[in-house]
Design a protein around this nucleic acid. Sequence first.
DNA 1: CGTAGGTTTGACTGATCTCAAGTTTGGTGG
DNA 2: CCACCAAACTTGAGATCAGTCAAACCTACG
Lengths: 243, 243
Amino acid sequence: MNANDDSPYEALIAKLRRMGPIDADDIAAVTALSVRRESRRASTYLVREGDRVDTCAVLVTGYACRSKTTREGRRQIVSFHMPGDILDVQHILLDRADHNVQVITPATYVVMKAADLRDLVHRRPNIADALWRDSLIDASVFREWVLNVGQRDARTRIAHMLCEFAVRNAAAGQGSPERFDLPMTQETIGDATGLTPVHVNRMLAALDAEGVIVRQRQQIQIADWPRMKRIADFDAAYLHEAA
Amino acid sequence: MNANDDSPYEALIAKLRRMGPIDADDIAAVTALSVRRESRRASTYLVREGDRVDTCAVLVTGYACRSKTTREGRRQIVSFHMPGDILDVQHILLDRADHNVQVITPATYVVMKAADLRDLVHRRPNIADALWRDSLIDASVFREWVLNVGQRDARTRIAHMLCEFAVRNAAAGQGSPERFDLPMTQETIGDATGLTPVHVNRMLAALDAEGVIVRQRQQIQIADWPRMKRIADFDAAYLHEAA
DNA sequence: CGTAGGTTTGACTGATCTCAAGTTTGGTGG
DNA sequence: CCACCAAACTTGAGATCAGTCAAACCTACG
């Protein structure tokens, strides 16, 4: 079940399967949806805060994030997304975007009409449950981020972010938790953790010096998972074994 | 539609109405649910992180919050709740609590079986939409909190928390946004904003000295809303005109 | 009227930010 | 294939916001 599969429905179906029982009729209903395939260059926006949105997008290849900004222009990333992730389930029922959706790397995704999805969930309870469950796990991740940014020190915060990325990335079928591409700059890590790029750099260097991670180009290797989890105060329970 | 109404269903029905169109059949289906009324003394837990949970609670009177803690025991409050709020919609589909639910003041609430609610939403699309919408707004609030705690300075952060509390509290039918009870200690405010109680105290004193808020006992009066909103960087859009 | 919890204030500390100057990396055009 | 350039990364030094520790002061309530 590779997210890079040819059918534009594969990514979504794989996601739904991870969220709950889905039968052949459910799949038939999904593949009957009309979808549009799109792609973006790196660092561009799909949705901006305040936009009226009546579509939902599912990421097929590449990486994305969601973010908000303060009036003074400080950006906070609130989540990262991997192939197979639904980028904005909330637009099924909320018509105004309260945050930005942007790709980090070049990316492709499929776009569906929110109204079609609303219709789909009313007909297919399994799909309704799966999508709702996905949005509830989304919310659980936000809660963990509030904790991360609110209570943990810089080193722990960054380590935690790396652990989550590693686990979810692997769950999305992209590499292993032990070694993975980290497709973002240190500034991006800073925007996700509420730290300056300079301090991110120092903390990454510290984790490297301690021997828990190894950095090579855009790759991260977690050399000692048990120690990394301890340093990061990371317990994957909040991902509800799916994300 | 007062949340303190006699019927234990009033609080939930009022909430659902705020979330979308609900007809007489929907209400009949809700009132057919079997519910249990319960109450708690101040500062006690309904749910603890890690618990298996197969119920959902709706707050009827009093105030509650949801929180998580780091391994070192630092507590982060991730949301506050007012009468009428559903305290844990997520347990309809997630069986393991990823955070604590605790009351702040003495409180009463009604408890429903998650399985009954699952059944209800499969039969009543309006209710499914309303509950899902509620949980999506929940998630939007978490995103705003990530931004608040990640990017705003102490004074702004506290001001923002007060604005949200004022607006949601009034929307729940408890007092006005201009003047309301703040049923919590400065330590609680600190746990919600990622600050120490000492610093919360200094920032509240500063806001008071500036003349934007007036503190009397457990009451807060927002003396100058336009200025308060500016100081707080507060824009209620993220509450999706309902919360 | 005593007590515990909450608030306030002061003095000092420290984690993280800011500013600024290199250094490395990766992509591009000649 | 090399030289160049912009972006990203790294390092250092000094500034600052918020934390820590500690004591005093309220105030609600038994």
